[in-house]
Structures are given as structure tokens and as C-alpha cells.
């Protein structure tokens, strides 16, 4: 690698411990279906970058949210592009992560000793769905408002505590400004941080256990 990397590596010592992993022999029978997890992670990275950029202009307020999205779409340099990339990467992330889950299931890669990695993967899947759900509200237009009204209403069908769970998710009786701020916080802070931790665990276990059990 380059001189800058070598200089950094002298301090961080990343290269030596990974040498075995990077030069390992892959098990036979791998195909492009084993790239779906990587594709999902790439989508996550693109979402992280474009999302960080959108957060420079988006205003999570009842009065200004929709206006700020219009501004991103019409005024900001390449705003339409960044928002479009964010939206489509989100769609692709859902597709890739579902296909990845299906591949792991079909190739029985969830079996011991990789059962914990399957659980971590499932938690990531739930976090991705939650990110999609919270992100859908943020444009604050008719479609997102009513989709969130319907989506959060589903929580109320749980017996006994359902209604209170719905109020908890909404931050009030109805979907309103408090819901918007809460969903924004989850979308840009809680969920990305959770996913980063889960993905670290996911990749660490792959390094230790190899693809499909045993290197």
C-alpha cells in the first residue's frame, strides 16, 4: 500500500492481524449470491454519506420540514441528485438485505457456531426496516403523513397495551410535530449508531468464523 497508509499502519497495526484474513483460501462453491451482504453494506455506506449531506439542509420542524425538502429539491446544488441517491439506496438496501437473509437461510449458514451472527443480522434487518419507516415520514407531505398514521396505528391492535404503545411511538395522541422530531432523531442518530455497532459485531464474527462455517 501507499506511504501514507504504511505510516498510519505503523501506529494502528491494522495490516498484520488482517494478513491471514485477506490472504485466506475461500471455501469452494461460492457464487455472486455471497456478495449480497457486501452490496447491502455498500448501500448503508452510501446512505450514511448522502444522509449526512442532506442533514445540512433538512429542518425537522412541523412548519419547515416540507419547505426544506422543496429547497433541497429545487435550490441546493445537486440537491435533487443527493436526495434521489439517498432514496434509491434505501430501496436497494431493503432489497439487498432481504436477498442476503434469504441466501443465508437457504445455504443454512445460520447454524452453530454462527447462530449469534444470524441473530445480529436479524437485529440489523429490523433496524433497517425501522430506518425505512422513520425516514418515510421526514418529507412531511400527505403521503408520508398518512403512511405514518396507518403504520403507527398498527401498534394499537396489540391487546391491552397497544394504544399506549402507539402513543409512545407517536409522542402524542396523533402524528404531529413531536412525531416528526422523534422519527428524525431515530433516523439520523439512534438507528445509524445501532446499525454501526451491529455491523461491527457481524463483520468481526465473519472474520473469526469465516464464510459458511470454518475457513
Amino acid at each position: 500500500m501507499g506511504k501514507t497508509f504504511d505510516w498510519l499502519d505503523k501506529k494502528f497495526r491494522i495490516k498484520a492481524p488482517h494478513k491471514g484474513f485477506l490472504r485466506r483460501r475461500l471455501p469452494p462453491g461460492l457464487s455472486y449470491f455471497y456478495c449480497l451482504g457486501g452490496a447491502a453494506f455498500t448501500s448503508y455506506l452510501i446512505l450514511f454519506i448522502t444522509g449526512s449531506m442532506l442533514s445540512l439542509y433538512y429542518v425537522p420542524s412541523e412548519m419547515e420540514a416540507y419547505e426544506s425538502v422543496l429547497k433541497i429539491q429545487r435550490v441546493v446544488h445537486l440537491g435533487w441528485l443527493i436526495r434521489g441517491v439517498h432514496k434509491w439506496s434505501a430501496t436497494l438496501l431493503i432489497v439487498f438485505i432481504l436477498c442476503h437473509t434469504l441466501r443465508v437461510f437457504i445455504s443454512r449458514a445460520y447454524r452453530a457456531p454462527k447462530e449469534l451472527n444470524w441473530m445480529v443480522g436479524c437485529l440489523t434487518l429490523v433496524s433497517v426496516f425501522a430506518s425505512g419507516f422513520t425516514g418515510y415520514l421526514l418529507p412531511w407531505d400527505q403521503k408520508s403523513y398518512w403512511a405514518t398514521t396507518v403504520g403507527t396505528s398498527m401498534a394499537s391492535t396489540i391487546p391491552m397495551m397497544g394504544r399506549h404503545l402507539m402513543y409512545l411511538i407517536r409522542g402524542g395522541m396523533d402524528v404531529g410535530g413531536d412525531t416528526l422530531i422523534r422519527f428524525y432523531s431515530f433516523h439520523v442518530l439512534w438507528l445509524p449508531v445501532t446499525m454501526a455497532a451491529l455491523l461491527w459485531a457481524h463483520f468481526h464474527m465473519i472474520k473469526r468464523q469465516g464464510i459458511k462455517g470454518g475457513l
Binding site: 454519506i49 449531506m53 445540512l56 435550490v75 441546493v76 446544488h77 445537486l78 440537491g79 441528485l81 443527493i82
Partner: peptide
């Protein structure tokens, strides 16, 4: 490329 686009995106429009 990404860094150039990001800088252009951040630079105030209008």
C-alpha cells in the same frame, strides 16, 4: 468525485 460533489452540495446556493 464524491468529495467534489459534497463540496458543491454544501456551498450555499442562490
Amino acid at each position: 468525485g464524491v468529495m467534489a460533489v459534497a463540496a458543491y452540495f454544501m456551498y450555499p446556493a442562490g
